[in-house]
């Protein structure tokens, strides 16, 4: 782990007067999978949106590929924004065919090719649904389309918000395999928000615990799940209520 993709310092995000995220420091390295875990309302999704350059932080520093973007300038910088993709918790598919949905990001970039779309569908077991409208899909299929839509863009950074929430083991396995493959074969940098600590353990090289918008611990996953430094991490992993 060498180069950093994200470098966060004293980053704060407030909605009105409520502080949702307040991080002292966090680095995301190139080519790693970092899992963000924590109880509901800990600010994981907000942090992910900040990393996705979809919102500007209230204060602090957020560097993306060495560039300071905390001032909100990145929203306007299309080229910078297009170095990452984010998959939301809900699939948020367009009312079009599966194929058109997966091709959507490519078409935005003026890419008319179909090869990447076909291979992404192949990999996620969606080929037989190519011409179906997305409204007829099951939850697992929809989530896979949502992932495929991000995959085809081949961005260096991928942000995943609960990509397997409420899915059956078969779909979980399909998605986890795809994520692992992207990381291993294409050395994509992936930040994964998940409720499921076992998933974090399975996929991530490092895991971070977020509590009330603050970072409690960031450790290599082995350490995080077996010998955490912070007692609150231990409690969270055990399944205790943590505050």
């Amino acid at each position: 782990m060498s180069e950093s993709v994200y470098q966060l310092n004293t980053l704060v995000k407030r909605y009105d007067s409520r502080t949702v995220v307040a991080l002292d420091s966090l680095t995301v390295y190139r080519g790693e999978i970092l899992a963000l875990v924590g109880p509901s309302g800990a600010g994981k999704s907000t942090l992910l949106r900040l990393l996705g350059l979809l919102e500007a932080p209230t204060s602090g520093s957020l560097q993306f590929f060495g560039r300071e973007v905390a001032n909100g300038s990145a929203q306007a910088d299309l080229e910078l924004r297009r170095r990452l993709t984010m998959v939301f918790q809900r699939p948020l598919l367009l009312n079009r065919s599966v194929q058109a949905n997966i091709a959507y990001g490519l078409r935005l970039r003026g890419d008319k090719s179909n090869g990447k779309v076909a291979s992404a569908m192949e990999q996620l077991g969606l080929s037989h649904l190519a011409r179906q409208n997305t409204r007829v899909l099951s939850g697992g299929e929809a989530q896979r389309v949502s992932l495929a839509r991000a995959m085809v863009l081949d961005t260096e950074v991928l942000l995943l918000d609960e990509p397997t929430a409420n899915l059956d083991p078969y779909n979980v396995n399909l998605i986890e395999t795809a994520v692992r493959k992207m990381n291993a074969e294409q050395s994509k940098t992936i930040v994964l928000v998940t409720h499921n600590i076992f998933q974090a353990h399975r996929l991530a090289q490092r895991t971070a615990l977020l509590l009330d918008g603050r970072l409690v611990e960031v450790s290599p996953s082995d350490v995080f799940f077996t010998a955490p430094a912070d007692p609150r991490t231990a409690a969270f992993v055990r399944g205790d209520m943590v505050y």
């Binding site: 929203q75 924004r81 990452l84 993709t85 939301f88 948020l92 367009l94 990001g105 863009l153």
Partner: peptide, 26 residues
């Protein structure tokens, strides 16, 4: 429309205009 749709479109690399057009089509 889903209130997060616009963010998702931006996250997929849409320009504001592209996102607006997609939402209109949606």
């Amino acid at each position: 429309l889903d209130s997060q749709l616009r963010l998702q479109l931006h996250a997929l690399g849409a320009t504001p205009r592209q996102a607006l057009w997609t939402m209109l089509v949606e």
